[in-house]
Every structure is written in structure tokens, then in C-alpha cells.
């Protein structure tokens, strides 16, 4: 159930190319949330007797059992994220309301997670919670502009070592030489080539709008039905 509360910024990680992760310490334990849910972050002060200020949505990248610390990752893309880049610093306070959203991976099915850039944060909490005994197949296709911007790759590698159910492939649009990343964007044709029995899995897509549109269209053309396609499309 959504709650509004103050958070202190405890750390900011700069990943390059204006991509940042922010660690937030809630003034009280954050409400329960599910992997894939998101929060609203407001930079301006909120008077609880007044209207909620301008805010933006960010996937909660941290795991549901880490309610004393929350993590988000963002790329500077507009006015609000520019303000975040300028104004956020360790020690400063922001207002959060959370949790929201229904982009929740159904772990009872075989799933294929398609993540572009910071969109991967919609899946990181789910991946963190994967157990070694998870009985279903989990595919992750994770792409970014360059291998350096696959900022959650270390987490994916750790989970992959622990859980044989997880098969991950990485993509980068540039600088792939000498890496194990496939060159270019995630494409439906590649996904279908790498996932066995591809019509039996449910696809979850989180990333930039053009990636979502291309993959939705490409997967649909290959016979993936609406019931097997879940997208995390924000405005």
C-alpha cells in the first residue's frame, strides 16, 4: 500500500554517460513492495497537508527485503533528471511515495526478461530473489549503449553462478570488441534464436520506448500473443 516518506540520499554512484544510481535511506522502514514495482521521487519539499509536488517514477532496483535502503538508477534525459543530476548529493533529502505498479514477473512461468539500459532495474529485485532451486527457466537479454553501461552485470553474473535456471546474454551498441557482448540492440530474431521453445515463455520488456516498440512488434510477428507479452512503458 503506497506511503509517502522522506529519504536521505546516502550515496550516488556515477556510471558514466550521465547514468547514476542513488542510494536512499528512508526516515522509517519503507513499505513492503514487490520486485518490479516503482517509486515516485520528488525533489521539492512536500508538506503532508498539501498537494504532492512534481515527481518522476523510478523502478526500485533494490531487493524487497532491503527496506532500510532503497536504490534507483536513472539516466539524464529531461528537465527533472537534469535537476536530479544537479541537486542530489549525499546528505540531501527527497520525498518518496511507493510502491506502485503491476510489472511483476510471474515466477510460475518460464520467462524472458528483455532489458534496455536503466530498464534493467525493473528486474534486478526479481533477479536478486531468485533461488538456486527455481523450477522455471529465466532468460535475461540485457543491452546498453556500451559494455561499461551494463551496470547491473556484476549482479547478473553472481545470480547466474548461483542459479542454473538463469541464462543471460548481454548486448552493447558499441565497444564490444574483446567482450562477450553481442554487438547491436536486442532484436526479436536474436531472442527467438537463443530461447528454446520461444512461444512457451512470457516476455517482459523494460527499456526505452523505441526498444519496447521494436521488440513488441517483432515478437508479435513471430507469434507471441498479448497474454505472453508484458511491457513496462512509462511516458
Amino acid at each position: 500500500m503506497p506511503q509517502k516518506f522522506r529519504c536521505q540520499v546516502t550515496d550516488i554512484l556515477e556510471h558514466g554517460e550521465r547514468v547514476y544510481s542513488v542510494i536512499l535511506k528512508p526516515e522509517k522502514v519503507a513499505p513492503r513492495f514487490l520486485p518490479g514495482q516503482f517509486l515516485h521521487l520528488a525533489l521539492d519539499n512536500y508538506n503532508p497537508g498539501d498537494f504532492w509536488p512534481d515527481s518522476r517514477t523510478f523502478s526500485i532496483a533494490s531487493a524487497p527485503d532491503e527496506r532500510h535502503n532503497l536504490r534507483i538508477t536513472y539516466a539524464v534525459k529531461g528537465q527533472f533528471t537534469s535537476r536530479m543530476e544537479t541537486e542530489l548529493c549525499p546528505g540531501c533529502e527527497v520525498w518518496i511515495k511507493m510502491p506502485y505498479g503491476e510489472f511483476i514477473v510471474n515466477a510460475e512461468n518460464d520467462v524472458c526478461l528483455l532489458a534496455g539500459g536503466t530498464g534493467v532495474t525493473a528486474f534486478t529485485a526479481f533477479l536478486t530473489g531468485l533461488s538456486a532451486e527455481h523450477p522455471r527457466r529465466v532468460f535475461l537479454f540485457y543491452g546498453a549503449r556500451s559494455p561499461d553501461l551494463l551496470i547491473y552485470r556484476p549482479l547478473v553474473d553472481v545470480v547466474q553462478q548461483r542459479c542454473s535456471c538463469l541464462k543471460a546474454r548481454f548486448f552493447a551498441e558499441q565497444d564490444t570488441e574483446g567482450t562477450d557482448c553481442l554487438s547491436g540492440r536486442i532484436e526479436a530474431a536474436i531472442v527467438f534464436g537463443l530461447v528454446s521453445n520461444p512461444l512457451s515463455v512470457t516476455y517482459y520488456i523494460a527499456g526505452p520506448p523505441e526498444m519496447i516498440n521494436e521488440l513488441t512488434s517483432g515478437l508479435g510477428q513471430r507469434g507471441v500473443t498479448q497474454e505472453h507479452l508484458v511491457i513496462d512503458a512509462w511516458e
Binding site: P2, W52, R56, T57, K97, Y100, G101, A233, E235
Partner: peptide, 16 residues
Amino acid sequence: CYCAGGENNTCGKRFS
């Protein structure tokens, strides 16, 4: 929509 009174676009998908 699950916006509380006086709130807008909580889902981030209000017009899409």
C-alpha cells in the same frame, strides 16, 4: 487509476 485525490499520473502511463 489509483492516483490519490489531487494527484496525477502516479502510474507514469496516464496518456499512453
